[in-house]
Amino acid sequence: MTAPAIAVSGLSVRYDGADRRALDEVAFEAVPGEILGILGPTGAGKSTLMQCLSGVIPRHEEDAAMRGDIEVFGRPLPDFAGLSEITESVGLVMQDPEVQLVNTMVREELVWGMENRGIPVPEIERRLRRACDLFDIGGLLDRFTHALSGGEKQRVVVASVFCLSPRIMLLDEPTSELDPAGTEGVMDAIRVLADEGVTVLVVEHKIEELAVHADRLLAMRRGRVEAIGTPRDVLMGSAAPDRPQVLDIALRLRERGHWDGEVPLSVPAAAATWQSMTNDPRSDRNRS
């Protein structure tokens, strides 16, 4: 069995003055090369979980009391010297891209973290080229960061964390300001990274995207893990906060006896299943 990249057990967090825990006995594991999608309504504790996994809680947020264990590649998080050391293994992309752009030009933004780590210039150039290809930001390099659109800012922020080559990437709503094409581009890039062995934990409200791209889903509600498993298992279970519309439609059709194939998670999958069902000579649809 593959050793987990990240292992969480008994994780609870309570903010000062809050009437309930933001996280309540959370436990799960993620293996190298896995994309774990995290779902849940607002206030479910998704962002708090990301902050715990990156060490931001308790090292930066002083108004949050945390208990429980987090291990990164078998090493307990408290054993790391500081946030900077944790970020050598764990890269965090926060929700608001505006506060993560700390340089005036995009090129400077992308190379700045690498410069801080003392990465040699040829390697910086190689990673920069790769980031431009993966996130389609080559045309933005000489632009001012504050003059980018919301979607462009998000792509630059994700790319700048990618440039640090973390073995675990935590993405907190990385596509919230992206259009469908931009979202697809970022999700494809995430898949490429996962195929190279990077573990990606991604918080998303775009459930259709997660259903297709994630290897497993973790559903949260009120600080607790409600379900964890394959996208199909989680989304067809009662713990899913929401479902892709196409899955909902297929389930309703199945109830009425019009869908006898596999329940699809995406529109292309639905189209393929529908085609195979209509080509099936035993199908009722061909007799009518």
Partner: peptide, 25 residues
């Protein structure tokens, strides 16, 4: 509030690392 978040972002990108730094440009 923003300055606190920006300080965190800088920290996450190794601003306070003690080791030698490279200069791309």
């Amino acid at each position: 509030k923003r300055s606190s978040e920006i300080a965190l972002s800088m920290e996450l990108r190794g601003y306070s690392l003690p080791g030698p730094r490279t200069f791309y440009r």
